[in-house]
Simulated assay, not measured.
Amino acid sequence: MCSMPLCSIAYSSRTAEGLTVDQIDALVRDASHHNRLAGVTGVLLCDGIRFLQYLEGPEDGIEFIFARVMNSRRHSDVVVLGRGEGSVRRFPYWSMHWIPVSQHELHAAAVADWTMLKAHRSEEQVVVLGVEQLAVLAAPHLRDESLPR
């Protein structure tokens, strides 16, 4: 997947029909436990219909956690938006945290540029990166939720 010590992956999926907030809370608590063991951090956006999740950590941890993601019955239609590598975590404070967002916010993050998970600029235009969209959506939650879960 990647050759650097820190890998990342972003994907979107469709939530299981009838999935409740309490069920999402339970899913996140379970994911947080497994992520801590694997050295993975990340954030999950949900608009009630779709998920968008970003995970970062060591390659073996990402592979283990993403295999769990792919086997989950709490969602379907998984689409990998991007994979990357780097040396700095973008969400080091959360082993997993979910943020309720509007359909518009989730869509804007999903259609942003995920081809590179590192910041880049085109000479002709500023490229809106998916990870930058996530950072904007997560920022209001950092004041209250800055401790690892």
Score class of each variant (00 low, 15 high):
Gln133Thr: 10
Val21Asn: 01
Arg50Ile: 06
Gln23Arg: 10
Ala138Gly: 06
His34Met: 07
Gly130Asn: 03
Leu55Asp: 00
Gln53Glu: 10
Leu19Ile: 10
Gly84Phe: 06
Val127His: 02
Ala26Phe: 01
Phe66Ala: 00
Glu85Gln: 14
Ala135Thr: 13
Glu123Pro: 11
Met1Thr: 05
Leu147Phe: 11
Ala10Cys: 11
Leu106Thr: 09
Asp144Lys: 00
His75Val: 06
Leu55Val: 09
Glu123Tyr: 07
Ile99Arg: 04
Ser122Met: 07
Leu52Pro: 15
Gly57Val: 15
Ala135Val: 14
Asp60Thr: 12
Arg149Trp: 07
Pro58Arg: 04
Met4Gln: 13
Leu37Arg: 10
Pro100His: 01
Asp113Gln: 01
Cys2Arg: 02
His141Gly: 07
His33Ala: 02
Val40Ala: 05
Val111Trp: 01
Asp47Pro: 14
Ala16Ser: 13
Phe91Pro: 06
Tyr93Glu: 10
Asp144Val: 00
Arg36Gly: 04
Leu117Thr: 14
Ala109Glu: 07
Val21His: 02
Gln125Phe: 06
Leu6Cys: 13
Ala67Asn: 09
Gly48Glu: 07
Ala38Phe: 15
Gln125Cys: 02
Ile49Gly: 09
Ser122Tyr: 02
Val79Met: 11
Leu106Ile: 04
Arg50Thr: 08
Met4Leu: 15
Thr15Gln: 13
Ser95Asp: 15
Ser102His: 11
Ser122Lys: 11
Arg50Asn: 12
Thr15His: 06
Thr41Cys: 11
Met116Tyr: 02
Glu59Asn: 03
Ser12Leu: 09
Cys2Trp: 09
Gly42Tyr: 12
Pro92Tyr: 06
Arg143Phe: 06
Arg74Val: 01
Val128Glu: 12
Gly18Ser: 13
Met116Pro: 00
Ala38Tyr: 14
Leu129Thr: 04
Leu45Asn: 04
Pro5Ala: 15
Asp47Ser: 09
Ala135Ile: 15
Ser146Asn: 07
Ser87Thr: 10
Asn35Glu: 09
Phe64Leu: 14
Arg89Glu: 07
Val126Met: 10
Gly42Thr: 07
His97Met: 14
Pro5Gln: 14
Thr20His: 02
Gly57Cys: 14
Met1Ala: 09
Arg74Thr: 04
Pro92Asn: 03
Gly39Tyr: 14
Leu117Asn: 04
His75Lys: 05
Ala119Met: 12
Glu105Lys: 13
Ile9Gln: 00
Leu55Gly: 03
His97Gln: 11
Val21Arg: 08
Trp114Glu: 00
Met4Gly: 08
